[in-house]
């Protein structure tokens, strides 16, 4: 690994290690207008730890999560992730697309509010896909997918249907199932419990707790205070792209 200048001491077992992260958007369509979305972000998350990001809408919480998933390009600094405390870091600011895809299969899961629907693919297939990408057989992965959907109280009649026509809450549960089906060492959660009823919120909370107990590092945005208080070990506040 490239040695990185350390501005302050960090826990040596961190799975997520963000160093002096800068993220800008240049809007070429609007005369090259520059937006500083994130500035000088430093953040570490250890195994078994859950960190909640807090801040007003537009403060940069989602941008930070997306940068950690390499969905957004890092302009400055480093975003490093690893699957275990003794594994080498992968620096997302320098990684090749195939290394990032590999990390997404093996290390880092992302649960967002919205499901990107693929035409003609059934709900259980959507959920089973991350397992199959890891080489698990179709039969086994579908079995586990159904179990997960059952746990999230999605009616069995929906499992074989494409989620395109599902309600917002149903789509979100499919997405949550897909996010939790693999025991990722790192989980990024973008308002996982929004628009869920109390019963399903409880299930998601359990899933997150189980992930923590397994030693996963969780970083999330939790709209709902009760959930945040129940799961988060630390709260990091972001204001105008900076941690305060």
């Amino acid at each position: 690994m490239n040695p990185i200048a350390r501005p302050e001491p960090r826990p040596s077992d961190a799975l997520i290690d963000v160093q002096a992260l800068n993220k800008q958007f240049t809007l070429h369509q609007q005369g090259g207008q520059l937006i500083n979305a994130l500035e000088g972000i430093n953040l570490q998350v250890s195994p078994g730890e859950c960190v909640a990001l807090q801040g007003a809408s537009g403060s940069g919480k989602s941008t930070l999560l997306r940068s950690l998933y390499a969905n957004y390009l890092v302009d400055g600094g480093h975003v490093r992730i690893r699957g275990a405390a003794d594994a080498p870091f992968l620096d997302l600011s320098q990684a090749q697309p195939r290394e990032i895809l590999q990390a997404r299969r093996q290390i880092i899961g992302y649960v967002s509010q919205f499901l990107r629907v693929i035409p003609r693919v059934s709900a259980e297939q959507v959920v089973a896909e991350p397992l199959q990408a890891r080489g698990i057989s179709e039969a086994d992965s579908l079995k586990r997918a159904r179990k997960m959907l059952e746990r999230l109280n999605l009616p069995a009649t929906l499992w074989t249907l494409a989620p395109g026509t599902f309600s917002g809450g149903e789509q979100q549960r499919v997405n949550i199932a897909r996010g939790f089906i693999v025991d990722y060492p790192i989980l990024l959660l973008d308002e996982p419990t929004a628009s869920l009823d109390a019963r399903n919120r409880e299930v998601v909370l359990e899933l997150m707790k189980e992930a923590k107990q397994r030693g996963s590092a969780l970083l999330g945005i939790f709209h709902d205070e009760a959930t945040r208080d129940a799961i988060a070990d630390r709260v990091v506040e972001i204001r105008q792209g900076r941690i305060v």
Partner: peptide, 30 residues
């Protein structure tokens, strides 16, 4: 999995598909 964006015979941008589509850098890609 990944994209190359071409304009007038040149590759103007390349990278992970969702990164190119969600966070395009080059004016043409945007």
């Amino acid at each position: 999995d990944r994209l190359m964006v071409m304009k007038e015979g040149q590759v103007v941008e390349s990278g992970l598909t969702d990164q190119i589509l969600d966070d395009p850098q080059h004016p043409y890609t945007q």
